[in-house]
Amino acid sequence: MTQPNLDWHNLGFQYIKTDQRYVSSWRDGAWDSGTLTEDHLVHISEGSTALHYGQQCFEGLKAYRCQDGSINLFRPDQNAARMQRSCARLLMPPVPTEMFIEACRQVVLANERFIPPYGSGGALYLRPYLIGVGDNIGVRTAPEFRFSVFCTPVGSYFKGGLTPANFIVSSYDRAAPNGTGAAKVGGNYAASLLPGQEAKNQHFADCIYLDPATHTKIEEVGAANFLAITRDGRRLVTPKSPSILESITKFSLLDIARDRLGLEVEQGDVLIDGLDAYSEAGACGTAAVITPIGGIQHGEKFHVFYSETEVGPVMRALYDELTGIQYGDRPAPAGWIVKVK
């Protein structure tokens, strides 16, 4: 197996074309058997609803090379379930869980040479997506659908890996109060491009979104979920809202915090004017893993958590436990790991 000429320790988070991807089509009420293809281009009708009306959703998960050479998929059943919820919101046919996991498994095996080696800090990022296709012009659900999974080797999403990053509160809303915020759909991300760029123009890693109804409570950190540790070090708090995309990483961290670190966990309101209650904070997600938050700019005030340069002890412990499970170095809770090889 020829290895690609890549600097495994400095990958970053960017597209790298790999060997094969999985494709399946939905027609006449059923998915076909699916296949692997070397063609990385998507050929669809110019009338496809994905192009004009945003009828599409996607997922993100990773495969990890373990020290013994085996390959782990982390909680793919939860990605399948979340995609099914997104499909229901956008009137798209759901991909069955077994089909979703098998597609991911095939893609990992077909592109095994692109999995970053154990110890590099990298992983193979999988991007399942589902789009409405077929000849159409009216505002209605598509006549056909395409489900595909491709992959690319990645490193850290935010520059610097497990180092604190600073964020700024945005005046924009990520999603409407009763909109598609809880679904992983492209429109939410398109809306985030401008505020995200404005944050970067001001030398922040990304922006913080407040709740769209009152603009008083933290909801998301760019494309990641927010979590914080109370000053007494005993509780992990994360926002709860119907317009948040619920992160599989976040729910995994809640379990780890409760069951392995002995913390109390709480989903509730995180007031933007109440940040003094927290000693540490972080952004979490499949891509970000955990990015400690050094500080948050809100209006004229800049609030610093544990440090702008050092990682707090709880964020470090959560990161070590989560990545230890993903790379097979620490025991995983039942059902969290699917062995690909």
Rank of each mutant, 00 (worst) to 15 (best):
I16D: 01
E321K: 05
N225I: 03
I272K: 03
D211T: 05
V107Q: 01
D269P: 04
S170D: 12
T323K: 12
H43I: 12
A165V: 09
A165D: 01
A30C: 04
S156V: 10
D206H: 08
V154C: 09
S86I: 04
G196Q: 07
P4W: 08
V169S: 11
F58H: 10
G222I: 05
V265F: 04
V221Y: 05
N225F: 02
T214E: 13
I131Q: 03
K339Y: 00
L90D: 01
A334N: 15
A176L: 12
G12L: 09
R127N: 12
V185E: 07
I16A: 01
S33A: 15
P177I: 03
C151L: 05
L6F: 12
T49D: 06
F74S: 13
L162E: 02
T141L: 03
L130M: 11
P164V: 07
T163Y: 00
F114T: 03
E102G: 09
V139D: 12
R140S: 15
R75M: 13
R140E: 15
I131W: 02
S148D: 04
I218G: 08
A283N: 07
Q55S: 07
T291H: 03
K217N: 14
L194I: 15
V107G: 08
K17E: 15
E144D: 14
I290F: 04
F204T: 09
G294Q: 04
I71C: 06
I337N: 09
P128E: 10
V237I: 13
L253N: 09
A30D: 13
C57G: 11
S252C: 05
S33L: 03
D320P: 08
I337P: 00
G294A: 00
A191K: 12
S247F: 00
P239I: 02
G132C: 07
A334M: 07
L126M: 05
Q297P: 10
R85Q: 14
H40W: 10
V221H: 01
S45V: 03
I325W: 06
G119M: 04
